[in-house]
Design a protein around this nucleic acid. Structure first.
Length: 470
RNA sequence: GGCGCCGUAGCCAAGUGGUAAGGCACGGGACUGCAAAUCCCUGAUCCCCGGUUCGAAUCCGGGCGGCGCCUCCA
């Protein structure tokens, strides 16, 4: 009945069966990072989500082209059209070149993605590498009469695009945000946005280019329109991004793309992931309460435990991050992997059982990427004793293609075997006491070590020890 | 003021009309000299009030509470 992948389309506010424009192929564009500083774990949800989507598309047998942009110019600090450029600001503060900063944080972002099991995108495009494309699109808009010039730049006139409010279902007359900020007063409507910003007189920017309108730099929104169109065509399948982008950034993208290209439907499916709530407020660079992946690793957690944490909630719901929830995810992930890897190759693979017992998992994922439900199904498979170990392995291999948790292949770090002769000697002494059945002495040594945070674990191969918490 | 999300067991979180997935913790059990580690078992009628219905966590109305966007932000 419900064959195929169903996705929630923000444009129609409905779950719809995904049908690619070009049979057998799906084009996906994801709004990428602004690389003036480190990406924190909240910033990683969009990429975990996009990866989940890409994996689901591939599981349908589709070939996927995934494009992500890197914003390395033009993203302003305060107002969309009146603040400082974040890249320039970061460069000024650190005394470094903007390109150098962008390269560093782009690389860190890619490394973190890989640690989370996210493959690199097929196309990773930088705004600064596509200035001509952006200028060209602005020229097209100008030719269509959708732009106007004011003292600080070239702007898009949303009055020329009647569908402007459709995506976000905005009531533009009632939007009052503009009243709370210092705005570019020359704009015709407050929702108009900059396409090209002029370099300020007397200010030497690191990043500026010539254009038909004068020296300056592109507005933030135009890069996504220009680059997605370049790599995916004038109409493409799916565009993803944070829910916060829906009313402004994506409304702007649609306005400029559909106007410049002269088309009615630039993107078929818009998908937006919700925020992670960090015990009461969002984590954001602006608020300064950032927490990067390495911080998690430093506290003894596995990167893929964060992926597991992400998979425990649906992407369209705000997810609460707390240290306890993260620790719970870490334990859950380690246990699941240990159980999966403990499965033998015995019993042969029952292909029929693979087809039938994987149904719930596939149905969950195909229902708008319901990862929590799918993860529960995978967990049941690991522990389903009615299936042979080999069959369970086969099922888990299939599940993991969607989940990306490396269930059967992850190398779990064992108890850290530190070198400490003094502790080794005490552990050996306890073991000797145990063998002599001198329990009081053995327990005394164990308590002594416990008091300094060392836990002894007796295994079939003898005792090992580890420090409880760093 | 406008647009939008959410409120389910101690914590995280599925479920959107037929009588509550899963994970973690807690408790119980197995194992152990006792522990640790591991494995097994165990818990909720769904923020409040009213309505619709044979039947609601699930639909409608009204509250209370949390969060996001409208300004850079995933």
């Amino acid at each position: 009945m419900t064959e195929g992948l169903f996705l929630f389309n923000s444009r129609t506010r409905k779950k719809e069966r995904f049908v690619p424009i070009k049979p057998g192929h799906a084009g996906v564009y994801s709004c990428g990072p602004t690389v003036y500083s480190a990406q924190h774990i909240g910033n990683m949800r969009p990429y975990l989500f996009a990866d989940l989507l890409v994996r689901a598309l591939k599981a349908q047998g589709l070939k996927v082209t995934h494009v992500i942009n890197v914003t390395d110019v033009g993203h302003l600090t305060d107002d969309a059209d009146a603040g400082e450029d974040k890249m320039e600001k970061a460069a000024a503060q650190s005394g470094r070149r903007a390109e150098e900063i962008a390269a560093e944080y782009t690389e860190q972002w890619l490394v973190d993605r890989r640690r989370l099991g996210i493959p690199d995108p097929d196309v990773l495009c930088k705004a600064t590498d596509h200035i001509p494309e952006q200028i060209e699109m602005i020229r097209q808009l100008e030719a269509k009469g959708a732009t106007y010039r004011i003292s600080d730049g070239i702007y898009f006139d949303i009055a020329k695009f009647p569908r402007y409010a459709d995506l976000a279902r905005l009531d533009l007359a009632q939007q009052e945000g503009a009243n709370r900020i210092e705005e570019v007063t020359e704009k015709r409507q407050s929702a108009d946005f900059a396409l090209w910003k002029f370099a300020e007189k007397g200010v030497q920017r690191q990043q500026e280019w010539d254009s038909p309108w004068g020296v300056g730099f592109p507005g933030w929104h135009i890069e996504c329109s220009a680059m997605s169109t370049k790599y995916l065509g004038e109409t493409f399948d799916i565009h993803t991004g944070g829910i916060d982008h829906l009313p402004v950034h994506h409304s702007n993208e649609i306005a400029q793309s559909e106007t410049a290209l002269g088309i009615d439907r630039w993107v078929n499916v818009w998908m937006h992931e919700e925020f992670i709530d960090f015990q009461g407020e969002k984590m954001s660079k602006s608020l300064g309460n950032v927490y990067i992946l390495q911080d998690l690793v430093d506290s003894g957690l596995l990167p893929l435990s964060f992926r597991y944490f992400f998979l425990q909630a649906h992407y369209r719901k705000q997810q609460t991050f707390t240290d306890d929830a993260m620790a719970a995810a870490d334990r859950g992930y380690r246990r699941l992997v240990a159980q999966a890897q403990a499965l033998s190759e015995d019993g042969g693979v029952d292909e029929q059982a693979v087809a039938s017992h994987g149904a719930e998992f596939r149905a969950a994922m195909n229902d708008d990427l319901n990862a929590p439900r799918a993860l529960a199904a995978a967990t049941q498979i690991v522990r389903d004793e009615s299936l042979s170990p080999a069959t369970r392995r086969a099922l888990l291999t299939e599940c993991d293609a969607w989940l990306g948790l490396d269930l059967l292949t992850a190398a779990l770090p064992q108890a850290i075997q530190e070198k400490d002769p003094r502790i080794d000697r005490l552990v050996a002494a306890r073991q000797a006491a145990r063998q002599a059945k001198e329990w009081a002495e053995a327990d005394r040594i164990r308590d002594e070590l416990a008091a300094e945070g060392v836990t002894i674990e007796d295994t079939p191969d003898g005792p090992i020890w580890r420090r409880s918490e760093p």
